[in-house]
Amino acid sequence: WWGGLYEERLGQGFAGFWHDLDEPTSFTAFGEPTLPRSARHALEGGGGDHREAHNVYALGMARSAYEGLRALAPGERPFVLSRSGWAGLQRYGGTWSGEVVAGWAGLRSSLARVLGLGLCGVPYSGTDVGGAEGTRSPELYLRWLQLAAHLPLLRTHGEPWEFGDEVLEHARVVLVERWRLLPYFVTLAHLARRTGVPYVRPLWWSAPEDRALRDCEDAFLLGDCLLVAPVLRPGADRRAVRLPRGRWYDVVTERAYEGPARVVVDAPPARIPVFARAGAVVPVRGEDGAPELEVWAPARGRTGGGLVVPDAGDGWVEPEIERYASRWEGRRVIVERSGEDGVSEPSCPVRVRGLAERSAPQM
């Protein structure tokens, strides 16, 4: 019944659905008579009343939407966002931060929430740029947008042109980079569906024994290839970044840093620090919009690689995972695709970065 309610909106051209206020909690927690506390729920054998079970309704709504959309538009992949949910929500759609407080504390909590949801099995989530009521601070809005552009879901609460030409120009750069990285986000989406590994990962993901990385709460890994260090405090134009083991390149300056280390880097208003792992193979959009592989030179004597999942478009065709390796051969970086039939050429053009090998001093 519920799934059928989406038919009219599909006919009007809607491409996706966002469930807001889908958890009837505010009234019933205080004894709303439409569902008294005497009503009991199974809750997977744990039992409980409506105050604990309200998120189950949001899960049921997401499931109904997903199944209804699959039946009504069988050739398209459903897009469903939910403000709330129960365990298993990731089967039917994603979620976002809801009405986070509009301030620097809200910005910091947004990152923590997306990291936590990913570790709990909900990989597709994001934040409201600007917070619940939107922010009037141009600096806060821009820093929030720079963070959100590197999260699975980017959603604004307020528009960049409200803050003047300078913010608008910086926002344009942010959104162009988001557009350029879309093939990488598509790859991370397919890997999350197949393996459960989230897009956004804590720095200790590959080295849980490293206490320094476990204590770092102000940066994150985006997949295996990128490290993102958002600016989370007002007035900052430089910030310290904790790097895991290995070589990392600043994606703007291409300067190389050797980890494990703590480095201090520039964070001007136009950008936040983002680093690429040496040897990484990152699918991106080239200047003409076509797919290309951005390969970061491995350290001498070492190899690198990456996984790429091309976007097959709408439908349910299972795309092939392309596996790549990168290595030095003399004065050149070689990039090869490996498969059941052996080694072959990459499926799209390759651009190698980090060849200057400009090393930065460590701190």
Results as ranks from 00 to 15, higher is better:
L10C: 06
G13W: 03
A15R: 13
F17I: 09
D20L: 04
L21F: 14
E23W: 05
E23R: 11
T28M: 09
T28F: 06
F30G: 11
E32N: 14
P33V: 09
T34Y: 11
P36R: 04
R37E: 15
S38C: 08
A39M: 11
A39I: 10
A39G: 09
G46F: 13
G48S: 08
D49C: 06
H50L: 15
R51K: 13
R51N: 14
A53P: 03
N55R: 13
A62L: 07
S64R: 12
E67K: 07
R70H: 11
A71N: 11
E76H: 13
E76M: 12
E76V: 13
R77T: 15
V80A: 08
G85E: 03
W86D: 09
A87L: 14
A87V: 13
A87H: 13
Y92A: 09
W96L: 14
E99Q: 08
V100K: 07
V100A: 14
V101P: 01
G106I: 02
L107I: 05
S110H: 05
L111N: 04
L111S: 05
R113M: 15
L115F: 04
G118D: 10
G121E: 08
V122G: 03
P123H: 08
S125R: 05
V129S: 01
G131D: 01
G134T: 03
L140N: 02
L154Y: 09
L154A: 11
G158K: 04
P160F: 00
E166M: 08
V167C: 09
L168K: 10
H170S: 11
E177D: 13
E177Y: 04
W179A: 13
Y184F: 13
F185I: 08
T187Q: 04
R193W: 10
Y199L: 15
Y199W: 14
P202M: 06
S206I: 03
R211Y: 01
D215H: 07
C216Q: 12
D218N: 10
L222V: 10
L222A: 09
L222Q: 03
L227R: 01
V231K: 00
V231A: 06
G235W: 02
R247E: 12
Y249P: 01
V252R: 14
V252L: 13
A261M: 02
V264Y: 02
V264Q: 10
A267W: 00
P268R: 05
P269G: 08
R271S: 14
R271N: 11
R277T: 07
D288C: 08
G289T: 07
G289S: 06
L293D: 01
V295D: 00
G301D: 01
G301S: 04
T303M: 10
G304W: 00
G306K: 02
L307N: 03
V308R: 01
V309A: 00
A312T: 14
G315E: 11
W316V: 13
P319W: 00
S326H: 05
E329G: 10
G330C: 03
V333L: 01
E336L: 07
R337W: 00
S338W: 10
S338F: 12
E340Y: 02
D341Q: 12
G342P: 05
S344R: 12
P346N: 06
S347I: 05
P349S: 05
V350H: 01
S359W: 13
Q362Y: 03
Q362V: 15
